[in-house]
């Protein structure tokens, strides 16, 4: 294992975050705070409690998940796409590193950034609403698992994309709508039966449900199913990354 290489890629990516602190951390925290003010305080004060949880607190896990998913994908996608775009990827591809080490460096850094961001948003939320975490170990587990899985997904997008438009396409057109429709701001039990069934095809439902369970002990779907779906997506992403490096897709000719 080329530990120095993993460390070099990881530090390089983390340093990029330091340079773009406003975009990487301040911007998502600000937008999440606005969600709390609008949905949590202004609208939430007129909403009934859901499963015994005030609406303001109920949306906390969903908002963290929303930021976690989009930031994991964006960070990892940009991290690998930018060197491809400017051509500096030649150095990584000619270095004595395996695809596992390259992935660990890039995805590890992207996941770290997302986890830190998620924790900052959690801390920020306590300024607006009282938040309890019933199962802190599971909460951290879901946070890490989701950050890693979606950073892997972003890494795949960053390799697949051949332009900035494509880089933004999946996070904006697929992930954000799925997150909004995945129960970030409501319990899927509040939906009519037909739409509840449709929603169960949305993988984000399982992430948010599991994560919310770790906070309040209530969930839309079974916790084991949530965990299983997240792990299944993780395995699918790992297989895709393995195939990319095996074939050199978009990386080598």
């Amino acid at each position: 294992m080329n530990i120095h290489a993993i460390g070099a890629i990881y530090r390089f990516e983390m340093a990029r975050t330091g340079r773009t602190l406003l975009q990487s951390v301040v911007s998502p925290v600000l937008s999440t705070s606005l969600y709390f003010i609008v949905f949590g305080s202004a609208i939430g004060s007129h909403m009934n409690a859901i499963d015994g949880v005030t609406y303001g607190a109920f949306i906390v896990p969903g908002l963290i998940m929303l930021a976690l998913l989009t930031q994991s994908i964006t960070n990892a996608a940009f991290g690998i796409y930018f060197p491809r775009f400017v051509g500096t990827i030649y150095e990584v591809l000619s270095a004595p590193v395996s695809f596992v080490e390259i992935t660990l460096g890039y995805v590890g850094a992207a996941a770290t950034k997302s986890i830190v961001l998620g924790l900052i948003i959690l801390a920020t939320s306590t300024l607006f609403v009282p938040v309890q975490v019933l199962h802190p170990v599971w909460m951290v587990g879901f946070l890490v698992l989701t950050a890693v899985t979606f950073s892997l997904f972003g890494f795949i997008i960053g390799i697949w994309a051949d332009g900035f438009e494509k880089l933004q396409m999946i996070p904006l057109l697929i992930v954000t709508p799925l997150t909004f429709l995945g129960g970030s701001f409501y319990s899927i039990d509040m939906l009519p039966p037909f739409w509840r069934s449709v929603t169960l095809f949305n993988p984000v439902v399982y992430l948010i449900s599991g994560f919310r369970w770790s906070f309040f002990g209530v969930s839309d779907v079974n916790i084991a199913l949530s965990l299983g779906m997240t792990l299944a997506f993780l395995v699918a992403c790992l297989v895709a990354v393995w195939w990319i490096f095996k074939t050199g897709y978009r990386l080598k000719s």
């Binding site: 120095h4 400017v86 150095e91």
Partner: peptide, 27 residues
Amino acid sequence: LVPQELKTDSFETVWATVSFSRGLFGK
């Protein structure tokens, strides 16, 4: 390898980018 085209990390410092290369090659 010194490639033909000037492929560099524009926002990095000289020290950081050269140190990165050393680490990447396992040193």
